[in-house]
Design a binder for these strands. Structure first.
Lengths: 232, 232
DNA sequence: GAAATGGTTAATATTTTGTAAAACGTTTGC
DNA sequence: GCAAACGTTTTACAAAATATTAACCATTTC
């Protein structure tokens, strides 16, 4: 799933312009037009990064930043008006991660977003999905979008692969069906949790029995996990 | 297009001297005479490499380096005055890639530039498009803008060739249609992503079946990749 | 101005995905 | 130990999403 950006900006023209470019780059975008709804949406949607205007109605950017930082360390990039004196000290204290001055070059905005995300990458799960994960008789290569079982390529549709990748990225941890719907399908997805079962079934058809050091296990009454048993 | 070098150096004699030699070697050259304008020009021009003096008015070399590294990993070579104690630790932290002490031998400067660029070449798209790429029954010669299939030249329009070249420069990696539009058509291009499909189709008509060690594959729900299967 | 190129649209074909329901297992309480 | 309740697996099917292709037009090139 792609990176989710929350734009908190009251000028709809600017917001839409940024959205346009971000969506073209496969980001998912949400927009809030005032500080209050920005905070609301933030805690509902849990975006991967926030673009935050300073001048905002209801609650200004600094307030929003402080509010978010009370409980969360999601990267925040501040958007500052042309002649606005940016008090970088205040900003740093409040925990903003970068600043971009209007009017901005969209190329730079994209570059900064990537830079900030990269800086945070050790902590974000998302980035982990870029590596190649290797288990006994199983290779998950998200860059190539392919899976090898006993060294042989196995055709696998996107959702199944993403599900496998997610579970395998958190070995031995149980996820409820709803957690999986949130994490693999996306927070805004409202679907039947049976859906997960069906995908697990389809996945199992392809990967089951490949190794006895790992397996996709059902935790009865709870959910599923990718279990690794390492007692060689 | 040739490699673009930005020289940030306040002594006009030195700057012009370097420019002279670089232009003789087919580099394009920009010069900034203080740190502040250096940073400005950098973000406007996006050079391929930066030669950066440490002693500078307005903003010293370290500051400039830090500013650039906030968002960008373009190679930077620091120019250090004769008796300047170079704090290599600081430099490394800030992300400089090499050091040259004044007074320098121009031959050495050129050599170092080439070396640093070579070191970076696997990561930069630009460099990849320069050489001749050879695969089984396929030669992509970007310098001559031509493609050989089984040794025979195949007529191919520029866009198709660029698309093929880009994909082949990153074998086994999936790109979404939007990424391809960005990387092949250019950042500012806003077009329908079906366009990519059509070009892929036209490309395939020309290259399909030429070899079974590589192919232009569709990754369903994601995008396309140039796949190499190396199990000879 | 004819041919080649690049881009768009629409139809057609294909694959994936979600859902409903039946079949199957496990737990629980008596 | 048995039956009801509940959770999971499986199957089948319809709906949705995506890819391919062909046809068309605008623009550029020769």
């Amino acid at each position: 799933m792609s990176t989710h950006v929350l734009i908190i900006e009251d000028d709809p023209n600017i917001a839409e312009l940024i959205r346009l470019y971000l969506e073209k780059d496969d980001f998912r975008v949400s927009i809030a037009s005032d500080g209050k709804s920005g905070v609301d949406i933030f805690f509902k949607a849990h975006p991967d990064i926030v673009l935050l205007d300073i001048m905002l109605p209801e609650l200004d950017g600094w307030e929003v930043c402080r509010e978010i930082r009370k409980t969360d360390k999601t990267p925040i990039i501040m958007l500052t008006a042309k002649d606005e004196t940016v008090d970088k000290v205040t900003g740093l204290e409040l925990g903003a991660d970068d600043y971009i001055s209007k009017p901005f070059d969209m190329k730079e905005v994209i570059a900064r977003i990537h830079a900030v995300l990269r800086r945070f990458s050790p902590e974000t799960e998302e980035n982990a999905s870029d590596d190649i994960k290797t288990f006994d008789n199983l290779v998950i290569n998200m860059a190539a979008y392919e899976v090898l079982i006993r060294g042989k390529k196995v055709e696998m549709p996107p959702k199944e692969l993403e599900l496998l990748n997610f579970l395998a990225s958190h070995p031995n941890r149980v996820f409820t069906r709803n957690q999986l719907l949130d994490d693999v399908w996306g927070f805004e997805y409202f679907g039947d949790s049976r859906t997960v079962d069906v995908h697990v079934k389809r996945l199992r058809e392809k990967i089951d029995g490949a190794s006895d050091t790992w397996s996709l296990k059902t935790v009865w009454g709870v959910g599923y996990k990718f279990e690794i048993t390492n007692d060689k």
